[in-house]
């Protein structure tokens, strides 16, 4: 994974829970440009562990002068977002990955419908800049509970094809009305809570949309859970995984070599074979199929955990 050491150029409080960060090259060198919907992985050193969270880029994808992300503080999470909120300040140095994209626009589409819920608005901010540049028709729907919480309002431009739905103001998003009657060749993209993604998928299926026109990205950080241990098959090494640590982070801290990319259970890069399993794998990823999950022969260490007596990994 190619990494960049950047300078935190600006930090801005957008809402009580959401901050925007801008990173630039310390020498002012241009950064790699990217595609709408791309994310970077941000490294957060924390004691003996390096926590790495992925965040969607919200800046202009064709602008190499800097990268911007918006981070919502999750007080019930493992501390990645609260680290960003409390410990990262202007002038700091921060290590990030080059951009990668698991949520790209299908530029063949005759029209793009973007649906964002809460902080799930973030990947669309770069996408809509790309759509504007490429002069592709689109409409964007942004749903938030209250205006005070809606970081997207500060981030979205005002435009006729950008619609804000605030449920506290009685303006709930009507997915049926949004999806019904769209022209053939439309693609829909959803990012936000699992419930929203499922609701869009259900509504699209009811209206007979093909699955290949329905895209989503559930941006989830690894959930905390009970501590557990894994055994490394090649060395016999036993690696403890703490409650607020992901299996991938624990393996990295223990010096076990393992590949990764998204750290959100979506890209498949860290897929690892399970050589012995006496217990239950808690699959939290979006990569393995239902059959693969049931077989317990594979695990995605970036997201998944384990309950039981013995888990041995082919590493």
């Amino acid at each position: 994974m190619t990494k960049l050491a950047l300078k935190v150029a600006a930090v801005e409080q957008l809402t009580p829970l959401v901050k925007r960060f801008r990173f630039e090259d310390p020498t002012g060198a241009p950064l790699p440009v990217f595609s709408g919907g791309a994310h970077i992985t941000v490294e957060m050193p924390n004691g003996d562990t390096i926590r790495r969270n992925s965040y969607s880029l919200i800046s202009d994808p064709y602008d190499p002068s800097g990268y911007e992300i918006a981070v919502r503080r999750e007080d019930t999470g493992r501390g990645g977002s609260s680290h960003m909120h409390s410990a990262v300040a202007e002038g700091d140095t921060i290590t990030v990955s080059v951009p990668a994209n698991l949520f790209q626009l299908d530029l063949r589409a005759r029209k793009h419908v973007l649906i964002g819920g809460g902080i799930g608005i973030t990947p669309f901010l770069s996408q809509l800049r790309q759509l504007d540049r490429e002069q592709k028709p689109y409409e964007l729907h942004y749903a938030a509970r209250s205006r005070a919480e809606a970081a997207g309002i500060a981030l979205l431009p005002e435009a006729a094809h950008i619609h804000v739905h605030i449920s506290d103001e009685g303006n709930r998003m009507d997915l049926g009305a949004i999806l019904d009657g769209q022209p053939l060749g439309t693609h829909v993209y959803t990012c936000g809570p699992e419930g929203l993604i499922a609701a869009v998928a259900d509504q699209a299926a009811r209206l007979g949309w093909p699955k290949s026109a329905v895209h989503s990205e559930a941006f989830t950080a690894p959930p905390p859970g009970a501590p557990f241990e894994v055994t490394i098959a090649s060395s016999g090494q036993i690696v403890p995984v703490k409650a607020d640590q992901s299996l991938l982070e624990a393996l990295e801290a223990a010096g076990v070599e393992i590949d990764y990319s998204c750290r959100g259970g979506a890209c498949g890069r860290c897929e690892t074979a399970v050589t012995a399993c006496d217990g239950q794998i808690e699959h939290n990823d979006h990569w393995l199929s239902a059959d693969e999950r049931a077989a317990q022969k594979k695990i995605m260490p970036c997201m998944s955990r384990f309950k039981g007596t013995r888990l041995e990994l082919d590493l």
Partner: peptide, 10 residues
């Protein structure tokens, strides 16, 4: 027919 069709058309 295709140019006038909506999503869901088979």
């Amino acid at each position: 027919l295709l140019s006038q069709a909506r999503m869901g058309t088979q």
